[in-house]
Design a protein around this nucleic acid. Structure first.
Lengths: 334, 334
DNA sequence: TTGAAAGCGCTACCAT
DNA sequence: ATGGTAGCGCTTTCAA
């Protein structure tokens, strides 16, 4: 059996209260006794049982993180930010993956709650009504991160999507592009897609003679980008730039262009949204809107920890700055 | 305050023992009482406190996973396998990232142990002598995963690296390549690099007139591949295929070739090792050795759970099959 | 089938 | 400064 505080007390010839005090530095202990206790601890390699501790203090130092799929690089980045900041405050991460299963989101929230997690960050890619009821029951610190849908109901961290697509479109225009195709992935209600689309429309509308050229991909994956690019190329030969609402779509577009021997950026410029890892690895490297995933994760958990510590928290929706990452996939029209 | 078993007992007019019994289905309870208890549980939304449970049962249903960096896609794949199988057995994952810091490996092992994790999977990219002492102390199920170094001291899951590079080299030869460069990343002791190199050498030696053309990159990242490719191209113009010991190196090579207008696979074939996610996204897609990361993770945690359940476990080193993923980056010499 | 009570390992309060 | 002890929420004997 592993040693307990009792064993330490016995061997050091003191009470367990005293041992507890030296472990936690919670109350003064005479130097000699402290010394003695420390020796014993070292000798038998005693390690406090955090579970027992949690039971009495109500502090598990655990934060639950529910994600869709770590395989998505943007999620990995989010989790990095979450974990790294968490560790700064001695919090550990309890990880759960849903792979898009909404029922799993609820299930894991329950489990996390039973395991006494002190807060939950839910990273989702869809909308789930049921979360609402769940989280109200638990009444524990909660942050909801969703790259695809806007949400007013829960604390969240995001960027100004409309401003982002607006700026990117303007950048493309400044490069001399007059026929810019925009690829959206969805017309669903509450989808951030609608907001992003507004940014594009706004920029286009501010330039006389420019026209909206909007395409809808079937989804938001690489394959969907590949497919829609086929449509774009065959439907309109004036287009000189393709701006996709997700990097994944852009990668698909880039692939299609590569496979069909259309040179990027000489014959076609391509821009994306997200700055997922692949965006900077793929050749040509993708010009895109950098969503600060790491920071989003970091800010999200920071907020949770503040709430745990009963510090004052910011308003529910935190807007982080974005950046236009200019790379080789976009060039000036000559 | 959240409801406890006591509250349930009181409201149902039974003892906490009885409530415990219906929760756990551990002993017979009369149908009426069970019914009543269940009703109360539902009504007040009672959820057992797993921490209290753990304290008495000694089962935390927690497995610690220490990784270098989730940002590496191969690690994300490993963790996926680990988590998914873990969940099948009701185990949750406690995640810790070291970012290559060896001291952190030890630190997290301690923390995990204090949190009563029932087993630990350590994913490392370097060798760390100190682990040995640590893990012996804890004497808990442990699996050590290292993609870069071989290890005899701990249970692990891997593939037959020598056979893998041997087969890939033979594949290249079968394609008609007579001058195949091999890029290694290290000559360190115990590095798997040495073993992989042997596979290449073996294949070369079995073909009369073929010569070893070995290059050493500075490291094993994309940049290092980019750099070494520069050397290869400038030093030897007979080479028609470049086989790198890591996909990351191959991606760098592909990038250099792209930037310098050398067509792949027409002018140069490129092969890799790993089949990280990028390998199948990059254009041209990379021909590579598929390390079954997901499966490795899955088998690793399966072994741990077996040990926890005191089932018989396999021998310490589990060898999984690999595959040669044939894609567009390699082609026949005409 | 049910209940009472001990005890898991620890903290925190109350004495001294 | 130190020790005794209640109690955190639960499972698990042991009796009844």
């Amino acid at each position: 059996m592993t040693a307990t505080i009792k064993d330490v007390a016995k061997m050091a010839g003191v009470s367990i209260s005293t041992v507890s005090r030296v472990i936690n530095n919670s109350k003064p202990v005479s130097p000699e006794i402290r010394q003695k206790v420390l020796e014993v601890i070292n000798e038998i390699g005693y390690k406090p049982n955090e579970v027992a501790r949690t039971l009495v203090t109500k502090k598990s130092f655990l934060i639950g993180v529910i994600v869709t799929d770590l395989g998505d690089t943007y999620i990995a980045q989010l989790v990095r930010g979450i974990e790294e900041v968490g560790k700064m405050y001695d919090y550990d991460i309890l990880l759960c993956s849903t792979y898009g299963d909404k029922a799993a989101e609820i299930k894991y929230m329950q489990i996390l709650s039973r395991k006494q997690a002190e807060g939950i960050i839910l990273i989702s890619d869809s909308l789930n009504k049921e979360i609402d009821n769940q989280i109200k029951d638990f009444k524990m610190p909660f942050v909801y991160l969703n790259r695809y849908f806007s949400n007013e109901d829960f604390p969240t961290v995001t960027i100004d999507s409309l401003e982002a697509t607006y700026e990117m479109t303007n950048y493309l225009i400044s490069l001399g592009h007059e026929n810019i195709a925009y690829v959206s992935s969805s017309e669903e209600e509450n989808s951030l897609e609608m907001i992003k689309l507004e940014g594009y429309k706004k920029a286009i509308s501010e330039n006389e003679g420019y026209e909206e050229k909007i395409y809808y991909a079937k989804g938001r994956n690489i394959d969907d980008g590949y497919e829609i690019c086929k449509d774009i190329i065959s439907s309109n030969d004036e287009i000189t730039a393709i701006f996709c609402s997700h990097d994944e779509l852009s990668i698909g577009v880039l692939s299609y262009l590569h496979d069909n021997n259309i040179k990027v950026p000489d014959q076609m410029s391509v821009a994306g949204y997200g700055d997922i890892k692949t965006a900077s690895i793929f050749r040509p490297r993708l010009t895109t809107i950098k969503e600060p995933f790491y920071d989003i994760g970091a800010v999200a958990i920071r907020r949770i920890i503040k709430e745990i510590k009963k510090e004052k928290v910011d308003k529910d929706t935190i807007i982080l700055p974005f950046q236009i990452q200019k790379r080789e996939s976009c060039a000036k029209i000559l």
